[in-house]
């Protein structure tokens, strides 16, 4: 066969077979995602799958013979304390989410207004609020424990006594202890909400407010008909993040109340921690972790269903 004919056939075969393997790998977007997928798989997906697996065993830090069973699953869901703990978790989460959003939005609005009027100290104000956010949960709990201390030398009660007001059982009364836990969590988490809302407020077109002013709208009307609708997506995204963050909070509570008195402030994450690290029940803790994951996912999907959708034309 003449050389030219062979070359022509080879070229034709390459055209039929398509581009080379290297080029195909290069052109395939999944190739570029493999490193990330491997990282996520090893460090995130595998532990999650292992937690699912452990939940279906009798694994314990003190036992030796691990076997697959549904006994742990049933024991965890039949635990009479679980319902009370879920109620406590619900109250703690909803109060924290609402509190953090309200205070975060209020501070963001104050900062925005201050900046618009070119007031000094707005950066300092933002920084001070952020300090609470960077304090570790354990330290946050210890700070509030000192403040709420019911000892004669407790900080807040000492101030109340100076004002001739009866001291408050901040941590020993089961109902007030929950309020104290919420206050400490809101104090710490407000800064995050403030940052989210501050960024969202910056993105609102100022001409909307100018038009509203021309139409004679007051401050409250602007807040209700312009600011809040424009912040809808930010509020929903923030709600998802703050809810998940609050559901996972146990460090601040363990150092503030330890979950007590009794189980008054024992939220699901703390119950899970205690199950694993105090009762050495690895399987039970895994079941509770899966429960937390399911609750977080359901709530995230619930919030996401309210997210404004992009129009097809956009």
């Amino acid at each position: 066969m003449p050389t030219t004919t062979a070359a022509a056939i080879g070229a034709a075969q390459r055209r039929v077979a398509g581009p080379s393997l290297a080029r195909r790998i290069e052109a395939n977007p999944f190739t570029w995602l493999v490193p990330v997928a491997v990282m996520l798989g090893v460090f995130y997906l595998y532990p999650i799958l292992d937690v699912f697996r452990l939940g279906l065993t009798n694994a314990s830090l003190v036992g030796s013979d691990e076997r697959y069973t549904l006994v742990t699953l049933r024991a965890m869901f039949e635990n009479p304390a679980l319902l009370d703990i879920l109620k406590t978790t619900f109250v703690f989460t909803i109060a924290s989410v609402i509190g953090q959003q309200v205070f975060g939005l209020a501070i963001a609005l104050i900062v925005m207004r201050g900046e618009r009027r070119k007031l000094r100290g707005m950066v300092a104000l933002r920084t001070i609020v952020l300090i609470a956010w960077v304090i570790p949960g354990i330290a946050n709990g210890l700070i509030w424990q000192m403040l709420f201390s019911e000892a004669p030398f407790g900080a807040i009660n000492s101030v109340l006594r100076m004002m001739h007001i009866s001291p408050v059982a901040w941590l020993s009364d089961p109902n007030i202890a929950m309020l104290s836990a919420v206050i400490s969590n809101v104090w710490r988490g407000t800064a995050f909400s403030m940052i989210v809302f501050y960024a969202a407020l910056k993105a609102i077109d100022p001409t909307l407010y100018e038009a509203a002013s021309v139409d004679g709208a007051g401050h409250l009307q602007k807040l209700r008909f312009i600011t809040l609708p424009q912040l809808r997506a930010a509020i929903l995204v923030n709600s998802i993040l703050v809810t998940i963050q609050t559901l996972n909070t146990f460090d601040a509570i363990i150092s503030l109340t330890g979950g007590g008195p009794g189980r008054a402030t024992e939220v699901l994450s703390l119950f899970t921690f205690n199950t694993v690290f105090r009762n050495y029940d690895l399987a039970g803790g895994s079941v509770l972790s899966v429960l937390m994951l399911v609750i977080s996912l359901v709530l995230a999907l619930f919030y996401a269903s309210f997210m404004p959708r992009r129009e097809a034309s956009e």
Partner: peptide, 23 residues
Amino acid sequence: VPIYPEISNQIQVMMGDVLSGTK
């Protein structure tokens, strides 16, 4: 004994409930 951590945990819960008047 292996059950002691759970006994201790339950006594702590019990003490909180009793001293705060919940139970």
